[in-house]
Design a protein around this nucleic acid. Sequence first.
DNA 1: CGTACAACCGCACGATCGTACGGATATTCC
DNA 2: GGAATATCCGTACGATCGTGCGGTTGTACG
Lengths: 123, 123
Amino acid sequence: MTTSHTHPVHPAGVERAIAGTVPRADAQSLAELLTLLADPVRLRVLFALASTEELCVGDLAMALEISMDQSSYALKQLRTAGLVQARRDGRVMYYRLADGFPHQLLDHCLRQLLTISDQENRT
Amino acid sequence: MTTSHTHPVHPAGVERAIAGTVPRADAQSLAELLTLLADPVRLRVLFALASTEELCVGDLAMALEISMDQSSYALKQLRTAGLVQARRDGRVMYYRLADGFPHQLLDHCLRQLLTISDQENRT
DNA sequence: CGTACAACCGCACGATCGTACGGATATTCC
DNA sequence: GGAATATCCGTACGATCGTGCGGTTGTACG
């Protein structure tokens, strides 16, 4: 199957599809955000931060029972994306959800998705 | 940095983190669902299907200006996950969002995430 | 039957990602 | 200054994923 689009349109419902189409750029940036969220470690980090305001790398690793590498790496990714922010106190870095973090993202979307994925896994 | 957890807890906010912890299995299945959504092609396919009820592989490819391989592959993934369902009519396969598909997922969550990712990209 | 067409499969390639390891950096305390 | 500690960096490895290509299946039509 090549990329040939000699395709004579069967239903003209294609028009509706084109009308409701998400631009490539938007889909791209949304996909990048979802990619960031689509990791078990990062998800658990977000939920952990949401329930305790502030945590350092080592304590987070302990709480989630993950390696400090994983904790540090996850926090770096989330920080780079602007979802969490850091504060230094001596030799300890404390991380928290960023100002303006959409808490509804966790409270509604993700918990709802959790329900969905639970349903799917029971099938 | 090894996996050493000789970590004496600094703040006992670790307790709160542990309390609000998402189980590994839940985080895993949620991450899998998010991984499925975290692709530009699949996202655009979902939005396209949401706006036109039913589409075949070729027409979808034409509407989104993607290859038929991409269209077919994306639909297969989404179908395997149970998010879309298929109907055969002659030699044409028509795809639609699955019965019980959480339309709010697109209408609320994803469009909201789109706004967020837009904000981040403007930074 | 044989051609035409839609959709799919098998495969391999390139790209991306998460992890683990060793070592580096920054900061505190003696 | 020097040891100890918390975090981070550079690197390499394995695993996963999306894409494109050729070929295959299933269906229609003359």
